[in-house]
């Protein structure tokens, strides 16, 4: 009798442990990127992908519909080719849709955001998204901003400064 109670308690412990492993695998971890079988593939060319990495989300209107499966370089155009796997229930994405590389929050991860177009034809498996917008690279934007400031500064100081400039020789 005592050994039976022992067996029940050990069985309880093992059940609890196995249940916890299942919860961790299926509830905590995302299982949608291990299925692999379903879905179809789209590609998009970007001139700069920032820090996008395989496994990043593909979102339509903010809803996750797929993930980035591969990133490579087109040897002719030197553009980044991003391959995305989209789940099957989102078959009807118009073929004039645009893909942007966006950032979740100020410091968050980068993801691909799709903006649906108005075309009646849908993108097929292996289709290519034509309209793309590259990642927001902070250095470039700051660089452009500074160049703009310098040009503006030289223009505004240019007209009064034009008088003394020929006077120097």
């Amino acid at each position: 009798m005592q050994s039976r109670a022992l067996e029940i308690l050990v069985g309880f412990f093992v059940c609890l442990g196995v249940a916890a492993i299942f919860v961790l695998t299926f509830r905590v971890a995302s299982t949608d990127n291990i299925g692999g079988g379903g879905g179809y593939t789209l590609t998009a060319d970007f001139s700069n992908i920032g820090s996008l990495s395989p496994g990043a989300s593909v979102k339509l209107a903010g809803v996750r519909i797929g993930s980035v499966t591969g990133i490579s370089i087109d040897p002719k155009t030197f553009q980044a080719v991003v391959a995305m796997r989209i789940s099957d229930q989102h078959r009807d994405i118009p073929d004039d849709s645009a893909a942007k590389i966006l950032t979740a929050g100020l410091l968050g991860e980068q993801y691909v955001g799709l903006e649906p177009g108005g075309s009646l034809d849908a993108l097929k498996d292996g289709g290519r998204i034509q309209f793309t917008q590259s990642a927001f690279v902070l250095e470039n934007v700051i660089g452009q901003f500074l160049t703009g400031m310098v040009q503006k500064g030289s223009q505004s100081s240019g007209s009064p400064g034009a008088a003394p400039a020929p006077a120097t020789p």
């Binding site: 412990f13 093992v14 609890l16 442990g17 196995v18 916890a20 492993i21 919860v23 961790l24 509830r27 905590v28």
Partner: peptide, 16 residues
């Protein structure tokens, strides 16, 4: 046998 089961229980308790 017990350590992985205990670790899983610990993690589930701590997270969820």
């Amino acid at each position: 046998i017990a350590m992985p089961l205990l670790t899983a229980i610990f993690s589930v308790m701590a997270i969820g």
